[in-house]
């Protein structure tokens, strides 16, 4: 056989392998769908077929983004699949944070995860599988949240994740379970009064790639915004070391910071409005509806308990959970 023929054959082998991989991917992604009942988006391809679903709404607005699917008490195909799957049956696999105090963090003295987000995860597991402990927690870094859902590594992500139009192109969100907004965290004796002219000449700290960073690029009131750190908590370290005068982050996370240092406080009104939602796969609308039903019940009483337990001390002026908003379809 000549070299050319050999390489040609190898080339065809590669194509055949890829084709086989495509078929397999399609099979695996479509199989669960074929059992997903009337709500299942039959006919929409998985990634293997290279067919992308149209974006949730091309004319997405912050207003429309928070609208989710109507709640349902029915146990959909996805929940059945979770109960019966070979790997980790009867366990909800959830992506969480391990570093956000009061939200999702690992207590170093017990090694356990705890916080507001974790309580919500337990409530969801209890409703879906009848056991609040039937959870496999997976720590996902901020920038891996979307990918973890898309790749099926996790069933959902409950991790102070803001509902945005950008993210809706790749994942589905539940209804909002918490309202927050960008705010300033300052030492108790600071002259800074809020997101206003009192920031002039002050040094502010933000996390790289955060909403706070882009908001300050828009309007910084003459503040020095050069301090950018990998994680919002690093800002509190800088504040304590006297390297900056204030931290800009969302009020929910700022509350987690204030809870660790009694000499700092939140000032001014939040100057943006953001909502946290539970992120799930776009391929599992039944799961989104089921979780929305859990949230309906959760808002009744457990939400308030969790708020009292984790956040009330440092995050005042919260009237309760945000009202759920649903899409028309």
């Amino acid at each position: 056989m000549t070299r050319k023929q050999r390489s040609a054959l190898r080339g065809w082998g590669g194509v055949a392998t890829m084709a086989l991989a495509c078929v397999l991917t399609a099979l695996f992604t479509l199989l669960p769908l074929s059992r997903s009942g009337p709500e299942g988006p039959i006919g929409t391809g998985g990634p293997g077929l290279g067919v992308t679903r149209p974006a949730a709404a091309d004319n997405c607005t912050p207003e429309s983004a928070v609208r989710s699917l109507r709640p349902s008490k029915d146990e959909g195909a996805t929940v059945k699949e979770i109960k019966e799957r070979k790997d980790k049956p009867n366990k909800l696999i959830v992506g969480v944070d391990q570093n956000s105090y009061r939200w999702g963090y690992r207590n170093p003295s017990t090694g356990d995860l705890e916080g507001f987000d974790i309580d919500l995860v337990r409530a969801i597991a209890d409703a879906l599988l009848g056991d609040p402990d039937a959870v496999v927690y997976r720590a996902v870094p901020t920038n891996q949240r979307v990918q973890a859902i898309e790749s099926g590594q996790v069933d959902m992500v409950v991790r102070t994740m803001t509902i945005t139009c950008e993210r809706l192109k790749e994942v589905a969100f539940s209804t909002a379970y918490f309202e927050t907004g960008q705010q300033l965290l300052v030492p108790n004796d600071s002259e800074i009064k809020g997101y206003d002219a009192s920031l002039k000449g002050k040094r502010l700290c933000t996390a790289t790639g955060s909403t706070a960073e882009s908001e300050l690029e828009r309007q910084s009131f003459g503040a020095d915004v050069s301090t950018k750190v990998p994680n919002q908590l690093d800002c509190l370290v800088r504040l304590q070391l006297g390297e900056v005068d204030a931290v800009v982050t969302d009020s929910a996370l700022a509350a987690g910071q204030a809870a660790q240092d009694p000499t700092v406080k939140l000032v001014g009104e939040p100057f943006t409005t953001e909502y946290y939602g539970v992120a799930m796969s776009k391929e599992s609308p039944d799961l989104v509806r089921r979780v929305n039903q859990v949230l309906v019940d959760y808002r009744e009483s457990d939400w308030g308990k969790a708020y009292e337990k984790w956040l009330a001390d440092d995050l005042k002026n919260v009237d309760g959970p945000p009202k759920p908003k649903y899409r028309e379809d």
Binding site: N99, S100, Y101, Y105, N107, P108, S109, T110, N231, L233, D234, L236, V237, R238, Q240, L241, Q257, Q260, D261
Partner: peptide, 20 residues
Amino acid sequence: ETARTYNRQGLPLGGAYLRN
């Protein structure tokens, strides 16, 4: 030392100090 103190109190700020 600051990192240790916060860590003993179970606060994630300890980890941030250690990284600092």
